Simulated assay, not measured.
Amino acid sequence: MVNNNSPLVLALRRFTRHKLAMTSGMVLLVMILLALCAPLFEIWLGVGANDVNLLNRLQGPSLAHPLGTDELGRDQFLRLLYGGRVSLFVGFTAAVFSVVIGTVIGLTAGYFGGRVDAFLMRMTDSFIALPGLPLLIVIAAIDLSKLGLPDAWVQSESVSLYRIVFIVALLGWTGEARLVRGAALSLREREFVMAAKGAGASHRHIMFHHILPNLLSPIIVAVTLSIGGVILVESALSFLGLGIQPPVASWGNMLTNAQQLIWEAPMQAVYPGLMIFITVIAFNFLGDGLQDAFDPKAEY
């Protein structure tokens, strides 16, 4: 039997009353479903997302091409769907890895305190002090073939996707680390933690079975809020030509291709730009809704 006064039920009730968050969640769900169904739309339209037809370039919307075609005659609607697959995958995966790294570092620092805390937090401060976007650009511009990696892997179409995930996760964990560290500092003094120590529980058991479950709410919120930021970073790097590389489509490199046609075919830039804007705003509203839902003092 479900307890109507349990924290999870109360959080769900507060979330359902947050209209912007609920609307954003529905919008994101529709976008994800459309992106996942991209192969079905290819079959329905009878054309591939990467099929080039120079005789049909920059065409307007039609039954054959719902959003028209791009500068190479490729279907704009299908490329938006596949670009959404890539951008959403990069955003979600990099955000999850960032939060995992930040959670481990913050939990370790907050639980042990002392010199461990001082060392990990000074390391975190060092990462925060680094110039974010310039450093991302420098790392993204590294020639992977000179690092001794296999040529088959370096030349694969998906290598740029995984590289972006790695770069963003490597540099994007600092905020989550400070958040988790602050919460862990408070939780380690609670009675249930003291009781576990008195019972002889190991540090690892206390950290991952007693403290970490009480941090899930802020961690979930952090993941949600991070996804929008990661999508913006991926879009910026792809726009600069250092992110997802063609022929793999992403919203960022679609903007890059459209910049030279902004006066001739402005909708080439409007479509991916609008998708980025809607996605980032929706994730931010969803994160705000989750933050209010998990806050017991919220008035929702």
Rank of each mutant, 00 (worst) to 15 (best):
F208T: 06
L161F: 00
T16G: 03
S145T: 11
V27K: 06
S160F: 06
G289V: 11
A21S: 14
F277V: 04
F41W: 03
A109G: 07
I139Y: 03
F166A: 11
V9L: 04
F112C: 12
A236K: 04
S158M: 08
E234A: 09
R204I: 15
M31H: 02
I211G: 13
G46C: 03
I32R: 00
D75A: 03
A177D: 08
M254E: 01
I211A: 13
S160K: 07
V159A: 03
E189R: 12
L237Y: 10
G182A: 09
F192T: 09
K146D: 02
L225E: 12
L45V: 05
E189C: 02
G243Q: 03
A21D: 09
A141I: 00
F277T: 12
L130M: 02
Y271T: 04
S145M: 08
L149T: 10
G175L: 09
V165F: 00
S158Y: 01
V180Y: 13
A265Y: 05
L36S: 12
G243V: 09
V230W: 10
S202R: 13
N284P: 10
Y111G: 10
W44F: 10
V100F: 06
R115H: 08
G200K: 06
I211K: 13
Q245Y: 02
T16H: 14
D292V: 02
P218Q: 06
G48K: 01
V233D: 05
I43F: 09
E71R: 01
L135F: 09
G110H: 10
L170V: 03
G60K: 10
I206N: 14
I32W: 05
R79Y: 02
Y162C: 07
M121I: 07
K146Q: 12
F41V: 00
I231T: 09
L187S: 02
L261M: 14
W251H: 05
D288I: 04
V159P: 04
G198L: 10
H205E: 15
F294D: 03
A141H: 08
L29S: 05
G287M: 05
L136M: 05
V280Q: 04
L290H: 01
A249T: 04
L67S: 00
L63M: 13
R163L: 08
T174S: 12
N3M: 03
H203K: 15
L72I: 10
L29F: 12
A298Y: 05
E191H: 06
D151W: 00
I244V: 09
K19Q: 07
H209L: 14
F15H: 01
N253L: 02
N3I: 08
A293W: 01
V90T: 06
H65D: 02
D70W: 08
Y300M: 14
